[in-house]
Protein backbone atom coordinates (compact mmCIF):
# COMPACT_ATOMS: atom_id res chain seq x y z
CA UNK A 1 0.00 0.00 0.00
CA UNK A 2 1.38 3.40 -1.02
CA UNK A 3 0.48 6.55 0.79
CA UNK A 4 0.76 10.12 -0.47
CA UNK A 5 2.21 12.83 1.80
CA UNK A 6 -1.27 14.25 2.18
CA UNK A 7 -2.68 10.90 3.24
CA UNK A 8 0.18 10.45 5.68
CA UNK A 9 -0.67 13.83 7.16
CA UNK A 10 -4.23 12.68 7.84
CA UNK A 11 -3.09 9.32 9.18
CA UNK A 12 -0.82 11.10 11.62
CA UNK A 13 -3.69 13.38 12.59
CA UNK A 14 -5.80 10.33 13.34
CA UNK A 15 -3.00 8.86 15.48
CA UNK A 16 -2.82 12.09 17.48
CA UNK A 17 -6.56 11.95 18.02
CA UNK A 18 -6.46 8.33 19.19
CA UNK A 19 -3.55 9.05 21.53
CA UNK A 20 -5.25 12.08 23.07
CA UNK A 21 -8.72 10.57 23.51
CA UNK A 22 -7.88 8.70 26.75
CA UNK A 23 -6.73 11.98 28.29
CA UNK A 24 -10.09 13.56 27.48
CA UNK A 25 -11.85 10.61 29.11
CA UNK A 26 -9.61 10.91 32.17
CA UNK A 27 -10.38 14.60 32.62
CA UNK A 28 -14.12 14.02 32.16
CA UNK A 29 -14.07 11.12 34.62
CA UNK A 30 -12.19 13.06 37.26
CA UNK A 31 -14.43 16.11 37.04
CA UNK A 32 -17.70 14.18 36.84
CA UNK A 33 -16.81 12.15 39.95
CA UNK A 34 -16.67 8.96 37.90
CA UNK A 35 -13.16 8.38 39.20
CA UNK A 36 -14.38 8.45 42.81
CA UNK A 37 -14.11 10.87 45.71
CA UNK A 38 -10.33 10.75 45.77
CA UNK A 39 -9.11 10.03 42.25
CA UNK A 40 -5.37 10.25 43.02
CA UNK A 41 -4.57 6.55 42.69
CA UNK A 42 -6.92 6.35 39.72
CA UNK A 43 -5.05 9.07 37.83
CA UNK A 44 -1.64 7.59 38.63
CA UNK A 45 -2.69 4.12 37.52
CA UNK A 46 -4.52 5.35 34.43
CA UNK A 47 -1.61 7.39 33.08
CA UNK A 48 0.83 4.56 33.90
CA UNK A 49 -1.24 2.06 31.96
CA UNK A 50 -1.49 4.67 29.19
CA UNK A 51 2.30 4.85 28.98
CA UNK A 52 2.62 1.06 28.87
CA UNK A 53 -0.11 0.69 26.22
CA UNK A 54 1.51 3.33 24.01
CA UNK A 55 4.89 1.69 24.48
CA UNK A 56 3.49 -1.66 23.35
CA UNK A 57 1.88 0.01 20.32
CA UNK A 58 5.23 1.60 19.42
CA UNK A 59 6.82 -1.83 19.50
CA UNK A 60 4.04 -3.20 17.31
CA UNK A 61 4.66 -0.70 14.51
CA UNK A 62 7.77 -2.12 12.89
CA UNK A 63 6.61 -5.78 12.86
CA UNK A 64 3.34 -4.70 11.20
CA UNK A 65 5.12 -2.41 8.73
CA UNK A 66 7.43 -5.26 7.72
CA UNK A 67 4.74 -7.89 7.50
CA UNK A 68 2.29 -5.73 5.56
CA UNK A 69 5.03 -3.97 3.56
CA UNK A 70 3.81 -0.54 4.70
CA UNK A 71 6.90 1.67 4.84
CA UNK A 72 4.73 4.71 5.59
CA UNK A 73 3.73 3.18 8.91
CA UNK A 74 7.30 3.50 10.14
CA UNK A 75 6.95 7.25 9.73
CA UNK A 76 4.31 7.31 12.49
CA UNK A 77 6.56 5.60 15.02
CA UNK A 78 8.24 8.75 16.27
CA UNK A 79 4.86 10.34 16.91
CA UNK A 80 3.61 7.36 18.91
CA UNK A 81 6.92 7.15 20.77
CA UNK A 82 6.57 10.75 21.90
CA UNK A 83 3.19 9.89 23.42
CA UNK A 84 4.89 7.16 25.47
CA UNK A 85 7.03 9.89 26.94
CA UNK A 86 3.99 12.16 27.40
CA UNK A 87 2.00 9.52 29.31
CA UNK A 88 5.01 8.51 31.40
CA UNK A 89 5.58 12.18 32.28
CA UNK A 90 1.94 12.59 33.31
CA UNK A 91 2.23 9.40 35.40
CA UNK A 92 5.23 10.68 37.31
CA UNK A 93 3.83 14.21 37.57
CA UNK A 94 0.61 12.81 39.06
CA UNK A 95 2.54 10.70 41.56
CA UNK A 96 4.75 13.59 42.59
CA UNK A 97 2.09 16.29 42.70
CA UNK A 98 -1.08 14.50 43.80
CA UNK A 99 0.30 11.70 45.97
CA UNK A 100 3.56 13.07 47.37
CA UNK A 101 2.25 16.67 47.22
CA UNK A 102 5.58 18.05 45.92
CA UNK A 103 7.76 16.68 48.70
CA UNK A 104 11.13 16.41 46.97
CA UNK A 105 12.81 14.69 49.86
CA UNK A 106 10.19 12.00 50.03
CA UNK A 107 10.48 11.47 46.26
CA UNK A 108 14.25 11.03 46.56
CA UNK A 109 13.90 8.63 49.48
CA UNK A 110 11.25 6.57 47.73
CA UNK A 111 13.33 6.20 44.54
CA UNK A 112 16.29 4.97 46.57
CA UNK A 113 14.36 2.75 48.97
CA UNK A 114 11.76 1.12 46.73
CA UNK A 115 13.16 -1.15 44.02
CA UNK A 116 9.96 -1.00 41.97
CA UNK A 117 10.11 2.80 41.85
CA UNK A 118 13.81 2.69 40.99
CA UNK A 119 13.06 0.31 38.12
CA UNK A 120 10.36 2.69 36.87
CA UNK A 121 12.68 5.69 37.23
CA UNK A 122 15.39 3.98 35.15
CA UNK A 123 12.82 3.22 32.44
CA UNK A 124 11.80 6.88 32.49
CA UNK A 125 15.42 8.04 32.10
CA UNK A 126 15.66 5.83 29.01
CA UNK A 127 12.50 7.44 27.66
CA UNK A 128 13.98 10.89 28.29
CA UNK A 129 17.13 9.97 26.37
CA UNK A 130 15.10 8.58 23.46
CA UNK A 131 12.83 11.63 23.39
CA UNK A 132 15.70 14.11 23.43
CA UNK A 133 17.42 12.29 20.56
CA UNK A 134 14.26 11.88 18.53
CA UNK A 135 14.91 15.04 16.48
CA UNK A 136 15.58 14.14 12.84
CA UNK A 137 18.71 16.29 12.79
CA UNK A 138 20.22 14.36 15.67
CA UNK A 139 19.30 11.07 14.10
CA UNK A 140 21.47 11.71 11.04
CA UNK A 141 24.19 13.32 13.13
CA UNK A 142 24.46 10.35 15.50
CA UNK A 143 24.46 7.72 12.76
CA UNK A 144 24.84 4.18 14.09
CA UNK A 145 25.00 5.38 17.65
CA UNK A 146 21.39 6.51 17.34
CA UNK A 147 20.21 2.98 16.59
CA UNK A 148 22.26 1.58 19.47
CA UNK A 149 20.78 4.12 21.87
CA UNK A 150 17.25 3.53 20.66
CA UNK A 151 17.59 -0.22 21.12
CA UNK A 152 17.29 0.66 24.83
CA UNK A 153 13.52 0.72 24.20
CA UNK A 154 13.61 -3.07 24.68
CA UNK A 155 15.18 -2.67 28.08
CA UNK A 156 12.64 0.06 28.90
CA UNK A 157 9.62 -2.10 28.11
CA UNK A 158 10.99 -4.94 30.26
CA UNK A 159 11.60 -2.52 33.15
CA UNK A 160 8.13 -1.01 32.82
CA UNK A 161 6.49 -4.44 32.90
CA UNK A 162 8.49 -5.35 36.03
CA UNK A 163 7.62 -1.99 37.60
CA UNK A 164 3.91 -2.66 37.04
CA UNK A 165 3.99 -6.22 38.33
CA UNK A 166 5.95 -5.19 41.39
CA UNK A 167 3.75 -2.22 42.22
CA UNK A 168 0.45 -4.03 42.70
CA UNK A 169 -0.87 -5.25 46.02
CA UNK A 170 -2.45 -8.50 44.96
CA UNK A 171 -4.13 -8.03 41.61
CA UNK A 172 -1.45 -9.79 39.59
CA UNK A 173 -3.60 -10.94 36.67
CA UNK A 174 -3.48 -7.71 34.66
CA UNK A 175 0.29 -7.18 35.03
CA UNK A 176 0.82 -10.85 34.18
CA UNK A 177 -1.08 -10.36 30.92
CA UNK A 178 1.13 -7.36 30.14
CA UNK A 179 4.28 -9.37 30.80
CA UNK A 180 2.96 -11.95 28.33
CA UNK A 181 2.37 -9.22 25.72
CA UNK A 182 5.89 -7.86 26.23
CA UNK A 183 7.34 -11.34 25.69
CA UNK A 184 5.32 -11.74 22.49
CA UNK A 185 6.45 -8.35 21.15
CA UNK A 186 10.08 -9.04 22.01
CA UNK A 187 9.87 -12.49 20.42
CA UNK A 188 9.24 -10.80 17.05
CA UNK A 189 12.79 -9.48 17.40
CA UNK A 190 14.50 -12.44 18.98
CA UNK A 191 17.26 -12.54 16.33
CA UNK A 192 18.11 -8.91 17.06
CA UNK A 193 17.96 -9.46 20.82
CA UNK A 194 20.17 -12.55 20.66
CA UNK A 195 22.56 -10.44 18.57
CA UNK A 196 23.07 -8.08 21.54
CA UNK A 197 24.38 -10.90 23.66
CA UNK A 198 26.71 -12.22 20.94
CA UNK A 199 28.46 -8.85 20.45
Amino acid sequence: MRVTPKQLFWIKGLFHLVALTPIVFLVLNVFSGGAGGDPVQYIIHYTGIGALNTLLITLLISPIAKKMKWPWLMRTRRLVGLYVFAYATLHIAAYFSLDLLFEWRLLGEEIVKRPYILVGAVAYLILVALTVTSLKKLMSKMGRKWQTLHNLIYLAVILVAIHFFWSVKSEIIQPSIYIGLVIVLLSFRWRKLIGFFKD
Binding site: V40, D99, L101, E103, L106, E110, K113, R114, W166, S167
Partner: peptide, 8 residues
Protein backbone atom coordinates in the same frame (compact mmCIF):
# COMPACT_ATOMS: atom_id res chain seq x y z
CA UNK B 1 6.81 -0.54 48.85
CA UNK B 2 6.17 2.87 50.40
CA UNK B 3 6.92 5.05 53.40
CA UNK B 4 4.51 5.10 56.33
CA UNK B 5 6.12 8.21 57.82
CA UNK B 6 3.50 10.54 56.39
CA UNK B 7 0.02 10.30 54.94
CA UNK B 8 -2.20 12.12 52.48
Amino acid sequence: RWSQASER
